[in-house]
Design a protein around this nucleic acid. Structure first.
Length: 882
RNA sequence: GGGCGGCUAGCUCAGCCGGUCAGAGCGCCUGGUUUACACCCAGGAGGUCGGGGGUUCGAACCCCUCGCCGCCCACCA
């Protein structure tokens, strides 16, 4: 006997264990099975599961379980990312909190050792959290971006791209994060609106003939100015072009140059040029061969290139000092306050500086070409499609990708420097040494590049490096390209685009056929969840409170949202209740001996109620299958919810209750078998979304071999739908609903059992009434249900298709209320008649609308008119009685 | 400046390949000890589908426009 309800806390770990030990997570080894593979977006190795992961991984699990049941060799490959900057940051913070020495004092080897220790301590957590969610990953294939195999892939890719001149070293401006003291890529820069100022400075002309005014929000950079630019056509400054100004504070003469970059409409029309500390100025500097003076050290303090009083000052202190000095010199021409966007490091939150350094770059422009084509011609499809536009926009304007980071946690760049600075790029030190020996003609000491690669460099290889590339492994052959990638739109650029580029370049094939972009989760008020706001919903706590299935069902049902999902516990609670409902339906079946019958052929059912539920089941199975095929997760969830609760529980189980007391043993047996068969089908259809409760019921109802996770997906034929049975039972449902509604409106006490008379019923309705009389009596709580030539006096009338129902509830009828009810119904019909009649009177409608639509409206009109007439008759009679 | 998404019952959202599509859940109201379930059952109230215009026989659904809300990219001397 089933317990009163499902207990997720005790069942979930047990069921997960059973799945894992059964080997169900491993792909079907049958070579004839089609491959269906997903690589997980690898979470940070030391991270913990947040609600976004819960959504993302639920959807992946739904797909994987669905395809696995459909017979595919389904592989969901899990793993984690070393997350260079994020992990290093965490460990550095730990060191600081413990009052330990900094990483620099500690030294590289000791620090990296420390990170590995931390990885060892916390690294398994997220995998276990995914298990709690029910994720059916093949853990035997779990990967980590710093694994030897993946590291080898990274080195090979680097060396190959370098040989192809698609990776190169260059000295140019980068976005420099002074907190981490590393270069970061454009994508890691976040523009934040802050309160700022523009200061207007006068630079005196060298010949003393006047001054030129420039404006800046970063006064300290003036110490590195090497020119002032004006527009070549700017009449105001024609005479000054070629002259010099004497740079205040510094005393350096710098030229006034003509360049299109200067916008005559902005400010004074003259702009200070700081090539080493501004991206636009850098280009101007290159065009005019201006000196590039770097005035910052890696921590953004001023260096030796500035006057003594400024050396060693923090940039912001220097800013104040420069302004003060201009004011003192009488050269401050104004200051305005305004909000403007300032670039910040997305991890550190520090203001980033354009900084002139040597870094490694990927020529992304070249790699982007094939990645654009693959989406253009549909080899890879985004779902929803509109994200392709975002992808194209970025890819078509892609800039060189700075891949070197001055960090310690990550893949060390496989480049070695000779004594003369010559670079030897090779897969390992021995190969580099060999190349050096070749080059120098003798043994020379080599020094490996200190830097590591951007974390996303290794992530970009994830779909193939995890499958064994560069080895030609069986997994690679079978599971690459992967089928679907499920990820958030926030990493389309960081990750998806780069996987596309690398996948195509190194394998010739796009890494996935389909990219499903899921929404981002917000709290119930629509705010982004963040630890500082304290509005974070912890998926593990939600699982504790409601069970994993409830959380999964909620996330699945809400996954249709375009951008944001507002998650509230009320919704989760609702889906927890849904699980309980299903559980109780199973209990009902158990109590009534509805156990699966070996060899039962649902299509052979004779009873109309059974034939009806069969049809409904088939329709649902088709709907759910189509929805899951197209990533319409919310539609699948909705169809299942509706079918289980509203169709199976509310109607079918109620409709069959009387049959257990009936004398017809054959029908009863058929009903029992059907009820069990439908329940079993529900378990199968529901399993991808709610794996735990369905697996538990699978085990506890009926004697079954094997686990539900490894069972086949229902393949039901559309031909099993019996439209006759469907319309008959729908007639029954409508009749009962009408009576219930009437009882409710008339306040007929539940205990009262009035008689029903059906007037003017067509033969088909008479037959149906005869066949289902016991059901109608029970469900509508009636004493009798007969056809009659006319309505008994004092009864309330309602429309039941072509017939008129008369409910003998004279003692409950409040004349005024009944009059109001009838008037309301009549008005509703009148409105409908009006609308429909007007349509049918419209010649254009008759001429242009499809025949079936016209016919539909004719029928509708006839029905409404008939209904209205009958209700009017009832109203008249009521008036005459009163 | 460029682009994207949203604006449908009190709340969260379906519906948006135009013709019973005006819906669901939650909340609210009324009634309920029907031998699966009160995490339940039966019933109910509630919306001129953001505003305006257009296309069409017909628009929540297509087009234009305006207005809010949110996001992305670029830029801001």
């Amino acid at each position: 006997m089933l317990d009163k309800s499902f207990d997720p806390a005790s069942a979930e770990p047990r069921l997960y264990q059973a799945w894992e030990t059964s080997g169900a997570f491993k792909p079907n080894p049958d070579p004839a099975a089609p491959a269906f593979s997903i690589v997980i977006p690898p979470p940070n190795v030391t991270g913990s599961l947040h609600i976004g992961h819960a959504l993302n991984n639920t959807l992946q699990d739904v797909l994987i379980r669905f395809e696995r049941m459909r017979g595919a060799a389904a592989l969901w490959l899990p793993g984690t990312d070393h997350a260079g900057i994020a992990t290093q940051m965490v460990v550095e913070r730990q060191l600081a909190e413990a009052g330990n020495i900094s990483r620099r004092d500690m030294g590289r080897d000791a620090f990296v050792e420390r990170v590995w220790t931390w990885k060892g301590e916390s690294g398994g957590a997220i995998a276990n959290q995914l298990r709690r969610l029910g994720a059916s990953c093949d853990w035997s294939r779990e990967r980590f971006t710093l694994d030897e195999g993946l590291s080898r892939a990274v080195r090979q890719v680097f060396v190959t791209l370098h040989r192809q001149k698609l990776i190169y070293r260059d000295k140019r401006l980068v976005n420099w994060d002074p907190h981490f003291q590393t270069a970061i890529s454009d994508l890691e820069v976040e523009q934040r609106e802050v309160e700022g100022h523009y200061w207007h400075f006068a630079y005196p002309l060298e010949d003393g003939s006047g001054e030129i005014v420039v404006a800046t929000s970063r006064p300290e950079t003036m110490l590195a100015d090497t020119a002032v630019a004006v527009h070549p056509d700017d009449a105001r400054y024609q005479a000054l072009i070629g002259k010099c100004v004497r740079l205040p504070i510094v005393g350096r003469p710098i030229p006034i140059i003509a360049d299109d970059y200067a916008d005559p409409d902005k400010g004074s029309g003259a702009v200070k040029i700081t090539p080493a500390h501004d991206f636009n100025d850098f280009k101007v500097g290159q065009r005019h061969r201006l000196p590039m003076i770097n005035i910052l050290d890696p921590q953004a303090r001023l260096n030796e290139a500035v006057p003594g009083a400024y050396r060693g000052l923090d940039r912001f202190a220097a800013r104040k000092k420069v302004v003060a000095e201009f004011e003192a010199l009488g050269l401050l021409r104004g200051v305005e306050t305004l909000r403007h966007a300032v670039p910040h490091g997305d991890r550190s939150g520090a203001v980033v500086e354009p900084y002139l350094t040597d870094q490694w770059y990927v020529d992304a422009k070249v790699l982007a070409g094939p990645a654009i084509s693959a989406v253009e011609d549909g080899r890879t499809v985004f779902e929803p499609r509109h994200w392709e536009k975002t992808y194209f926009e970025w890819m078509r304007n892609i800039e060189p990708w700075c891949i070197s980071r001055q960090l310690w946690w990550g893949h060390r760049i496989p480049a070695w420097y000779g004594p003369d600075g010559r670079i030897f790029v090779a897969e390992d030190e021995a190969a580099a040494a060999a190349a050096a020996r070749e080059h120098y003609g003798r043994e020379e000491p080599l020094r490996q590049d200190e830097d590591v690669l951007d974390t996303w460099f290794s992530s970009a290889l994830w779909p193939f490096s995890t499958l064994g590339w560069p080895e030609k492994t069986a997994d690679l052959a079978r599971f690459y390209p992967t089928h679907t990638l499920v990820t958030g739109f926030d990493i389309i650029f960081f990750w998806v685009a780069r996987m596309m580029m690398m996948g195509l370049h190194f394998t010739g094939q796009a890494p996935f056929r389909r990219v499903f972009i899921n929404a981002l989760i917000r709290d119930a008020e629509g705010a982004k969840m963040s630890k500082s706001k304290g509005n974070v919903m912890d998926p593990l706590e939600l699982i504790d409170a409601y069970g994993a299935d409830a959380l999964r069902f909620t996330l699945t049902a809400m996954s249709g949202q375009a951008r944001d999902i507002r998650l509230s516990t009320a919704r989760i609670e609702g889906y927890r209740n849904f699980g309980t409902k299903l559980w109780n339906a199973a209990r009902f079946c158990e109590i009534n001996d509805c156990a699966p019958v070996q060899g039962f052929d649902p299509a052979g059912a004779r009873d109309r109620v059974n034939r009806w539920i069969l049809g409904e089941t088939v329709a649902t199975a088709i709907k759910v299958t189509q929805a899951l095929e197209t990533c319409a997760f919310d539609a699948a969830a909705a169809a299942l919810y509706r079918f289980v609760w509203n169709t199976y529980c509310d109607w079918y189980l109620e409709l069959i209750k009387p049959s257990f007391r009936a004398a017809d043993a054959a029908t009863t047996a058929e009903t029992r078998a059907m009820a069990a068969w439908v329940l079993e089908t529900i378990l199968r259809l529901l399993h991808p979304v709610a794996p735990f409760i369905t697996e538990e019921l699978w085990a506890k109802t009926g004697r079954r071999q094997g686990l539900l996770i490894s069972t086949d997906w229902p393949q039901l034929s559309q031909t099993w739908i019996d439209p006759e049975a469907g319309s008959e039972i729908n007639w029954l449902i409508e009749l009962v609903s009408e009576i219930r509604q009437l009882r409710g409106e008339m306040n007929v006490p539940p205990a009262a059992k009035p008689a029903l008379a059906l007037i003017g019923a067509a033969p088909a309705s008479r037959d149906r009434l005869e066949r289902h009389r016991p059901l109608i009596l029970t469900l509508a709580r009636l004493s009798s249900a007969q056809t009659a030539p006319s309505a008994p006096p004092g009864s309330a009338l309602f429309v039941a298709g072509e017939a008129t129902g008369a409910l003998a509830i004279a003692e409950h009828i409040d004349i005024a209320a009944e009059r109001a009810r009838l008037a309301r119904e009549i008005a509703a019909h009148a409105a409908d008649i009006d609308r429909t009649a007007r349509k049918l009177a419209n010649a254009a409608f008759l001429a242009k609308a499809p025949d079936e639509v016209v016919e539909e409206n004719r029928e509708r009109l006839a029905q409404s008119e008939s209904a209205k007439a009958r209700l009017e008759g009832a109203l008249t009679r009521l008036e005459s009685v009163a």
